[in-house]
Amino acid sequence: MNGLQLYLQSLLNIKHVNYGGYRYIKRWVSPTQKEITRRKRRLPPQSESKRSNFIDWNRNSEIYAFNTRLSEKFDTEKLNQAFTHKSYIVAELKKQQEMGIEEPKLDISHNEEYIEKGREITSEIVKKYLNRSLPRLPEVGIMALHDYLMSEQMLATASSHIGTKDIILTSEHPVSQQTLAQTFVALVGALVESINVDHASAFVRDFLIVGLANKDLTEIWCPTKPFELLNDVIDAERKMSIEARLIGQAGKNTILSVYHVGIYANKEYLGSGFGETIAEAKDVAAINILAQIYGLHHTSQPLRFNEELNVSA
C-alpha cells in the first residue's frame, strides 16, 4: 500500500514540461500525413514483414515461451528440430556456398522423420479417440471424420492457433498451409520423443480433435444410402424390417411443397424427416434416426474432449 502511495505521489509531482497543453495542431501536420498516406497507397502491395528480421527477435526466448505457454515439457533440442524444415537447411547451405565457403556445413537437423512419425501417431490417436467417443459409428464414418481432422486445413489451423507461424524455420515466406500442417505433426513426433505417446495424445486431443466441437458432424459424414443402411442396422439389432409412411404434407402443387415421412419398425415410431419430395423426406428421416443412433445428431450429447487415452497399452 505504501509503495502504491509513493508511486501515486511521484506521478502527481511530475511537471508536464514536455507535454504542455496547447489548443492547436500545427499547420504542417495534416498535409504531411496526407502525403505519407498518398505515397503508401501508390506503393505496390508490400509483402508481410518477417518477424524474425526485427531487431528485437530472440529465437531462444520464443522457443522457451512456446514451451511454457502450452505448459508442455518439450525437449528444447527436439523442439528446435521439429521447427526446422528441410528447405531451410538447403537454403542456408546454398547461401554459404554463394558466400564462397568450400565445404558448407550446418550443424542442425531437419524434421523430416518427425513429420513422418508424427503423422502416423496423430492418425492413430485420432482414430482411437473417435472410436472411443463415438462407439456406434461404423468404420466409414470414423474414417471420414479422421480424414477431415487430418486434412491440411485442419492441421494448419491447429498449428497456427498455437503460435508456430513465426518460429518455423523454412525457406518460404509467408509460411504455406502445408508447412504449418507438417509442423503440427512434427511437434507431435517431437513430443512423443520428449515425453511419451500418452502425453502426445492429450496434445492432439486438446489442439486438433477439439476442432470437431460445434461442427455439424453430419455435414462431414453422411451415409449415401441411409434408408438401406438403417434397414440393415434395425434388422441386425431387432430382427425387424422398417417401413416408411407419409405422415404429413403441405402445399402439394406449389414449389414450396413439404412432405413429412415417418419411419416405423413393427408399428413402433422411430423418427421422422421433412423434405421437398417424398424420396428426399424418406432419406432425411433415415439420416435423422441414424445420426441419433451414432451420436452425430445436433441433439445428441456433444463430443467430450476431456477423456484420457491410453495409446501405449
Binding site: T218, G251, L256, H260, F274, V284
Partner: peptide, 14 residues
C-alpha cells in the same frame, strides 16, 4: 447437410 436442410424445410413449411 441434408439433415439440416430437412429441418429448415419443415420449420418454414407453408
Amino acid at each position: 447437410s441434408l439433415l439440416r436442410k430437412g429441418q429448415q424445410w419443415g420449420t418454414f413449411a407453408c
